[in-house]
Design a protein around this nucleic acid. Structure first.
Lengths: 208, 208
DNA sequence: ACCTGAACACCGTTCAAGT
DNA sequence: ACCTGAACACCGTTCAAGT
């Protein structure tokens, strides 16, 4: 971990770039052989740096989750509390619509990995203030949680299948509908309790 | 197609039952060998009836889509127009939450198959009257389409990862939020045009 | 006709040989 | 140390032999 030989470090970077592209385009179906070819290295070299396909994906996912956290922090600078939420949700949804791997990550075992769970928690913690501020300002209903907000982000992207020829930002429509449902004026009592981040973490723990 | 020998017909049924269970539990990751074992037949027998894994999944998906259509027709009998929509959406979301394969189908190439596309169109046609009636009654905003309604059904289920230990009906919460956003009172102009069934069909056609 | 275990192709992963 | 093509294991699919 301390430092790799120069050529190895270069290969590592090439592999990560190739993998990021491949996973973004084809999702987790992207093959290791294809990634090795795109990176211009032998296939065994990929496995020398990343013991498993999942580990490689995990490395990239960590970056993405960090970006998501940054997006939340940037959004926090918006003057309007509701707009801050919107800016974050749009940034996150756009990321997921562009990156098939990122989108698929949520329904994958990768979540189990402690590092991923940790980064995920960071995202949650970065979004929490946005939710709290909007609720204090009275522009977001009080009965929705941060997990709800993140779930709705993903849900918006999940509404339509990713197909060349179908507009990529179709999620904007669904996100808009969600937002309309999340304003206090529209509120109707929610039927089931929210699932918290800790609920999911505990379930993953038991599952493993 | 006319008629199989009695033992073959029995095996066919066993395979379909085993596959339905396997796909429901594990989604498309379910292996053909496992299905064969569950059905109590040799693996080659599965391929004798269904030339490919996709064909087998397709056969099951057709049934599920037919059930979805029936659910829409049953829902149409509800006295209240909004309640009719809710009943349908709850039935469909529950089906998808229970059946991982059905859930995954939407983002899979299976949609390309003409028979599937046809059944899908039937579902759309069965839901259209529900949407129209709710809009005429003034309980559903005029700018949402049938495709929106179906997309939101899937989106609700997509909000949370399917994990043992996380409540299976978490989708109820998201569906409720969606519904709140779909009532006329909450309406805010939608940012992008709806994607129609024909748009998706055309994109699939070009894609193939 | 139908059934089946064995063989084949592909992809994730590991190994033995090379620098 | 690092790199790599070849070998291995697994799963979808096909084949040749059996009833």
């Amino acid at each position: 971990m301390t430092s790799l030989r120069a050529d190895a470090e270069r290969n590592r970077r090439l592999i990560l770039e190739a993998a990021a592209e491949a996973f973004a385009e084809r999702g987790l179906d992207a093959g290791m052989a294809e990634i090795a070819r795109r990176a211009g290295v032998g296939n065994a070299t990929v496995f020398r740096r990343f013991p498993t396909k999942e580990a490689l994906f995990e490395a990239i996912l960590e970056d993405r989750l960090a970006e998501l956290g940054s997006a939340a922090e940037r959004a926090a600078e918006e003057a309007d509390p509701f707009e801050a939420l919107v800016v974050f949700l749009e940034a996150g949804a756009a990321m997921q619509a562009r990156d098939r791997g990122l989108f698929q990550a949520t329904e994958h075992h990768v979540l189990e990995h402690p590092e991923i769970l940790e980064k995920h928690r960071c995202v949650v913690e970065a979004v929490e203030p946005l939710v709290a501020r909007a609720q204090e300002a009275g522009v977001l209903r009080d009965d929705v949680t941060t997990t709800d907000v993140l779930a709705l982000m993903k849900a918006s992207v999940a509404g339509l299948p990713p197909l060349p020829g179908v507009r990529e930002d179709g999620w904007r429509r669904f996100l808009s509908l969600f937002l309309d449902g999340m304003r206090p004026g529209a509120a109707t009592p929610l039927p089931v309790p929210a699932v918290s981040f800790d609920d999911v973490a505990a379930a993953l723990h038991d599952y493993a």
